[in-house]
Design a protein around this nucleic acid. Sequence first.
DNA 1: TTGTGTGCAAAAGCTTTGCATGTTG
DNA 2: CAACATGCAAAGCTTTTGCACACAA
Lengths: 159, 159
Amino acid sequence: MSNMATSKNDDPILKEVVNIFSAHLESHSFRKTPERYAILEEIYRRDDHFDAEALYIHMKNQNYRVSRATVYNTLELLVNCDLVKKHQFGKNLAQYEKSYGYKQHDHLICVDCGKVLEFCDPRIQQIKNMMGDLLKFQITHHSLNLYGRCDGACPKTAK
Amino acid sequence: MSNMATSKNDDPILKEVVNIFSAHLESHSFRKTPERYAILEEIYRRDDHFDAEALYIHMKNQNYRVSRATVYNTLELLVNCDLVKKHQFGKNLAQYEKSYGYKQHDHLICVDCGKVLEFCDPRIQQIKNMMGDLLKFQITHHSLNLYGRCDGACPKTAK
DNA sequence: TTGTGTGCAAAAGCTTTGCATGTTG
DNA sequence: CAACATGCAAAGCTTTTGCACACAA
């Protein structure tokens, strides 16, 4: 089985993010609880974007004993140490994604089917630099979402 | 009183947006109710960004008889005919602003005090064109928010 | 007159909070 | 063992929905 190399104990990315998370917890005198690590591992086992409820349900299905409160609490910790990014794709529902090892990217969202594509463009960094200078802001992060229709491939466009 | 020239009956912008709204209602066979026009006028009398609840309260304070349901319903109509823009500035709360007569702009938000500045940059249009082509999307709109701190001027940064 | 729009209140959906219990440091 | 984190459930907030009545076409 070739995927044994990516099992929980061998995945080098997972080891690295666990280290980063531990350092973050230590530096803020937050406690290292099994729930916090379980949530981190669950997130890094998954791909794509997810919301808090889906993560909670997924933990429950795997028989972890966690509460919604802990899921939200831990997500905030992970956002604070840059291991997870939080997005709002036009709805009143926060979406999350793991961010370690991924390069900076923005999103293109299909308003018909909800599909999310990712893209990179260096001009966004230039805009951030210029506007930070011009408007005397220390810019820490940004959110760029393009909305449209993925015509040909969209399952809902051809309705 | 010099501001009489901008009163409800003389404001040319207001007349124009009322015409646009009327055309939109007609073309969709939606009814022209006094509530819908009252909300439109209230929005165009105000500046800056506002949320649905603030608009509702403001209408109530002026003794209009409107409901939250109608406020939300009308805001959606106005967004659909491009007279109002809807934003999410990182919170679970939709913010709105009038858009007729304003050129396209994006936002810079202070994460400490919530202040919102506006800016324009032509590069964002280039990014939209390029990514639409590249990823086979018909891009209809976008949302670009830069987040940071307005250090010197920020009332909450110096705490 | 007919059916859409409205006000009101209740419900829904996501997120946060309070409290008693459990567990880390 | 003291403080912090957790689970659970309830509350909070924004937004949506159901229903009876009003009114635009």
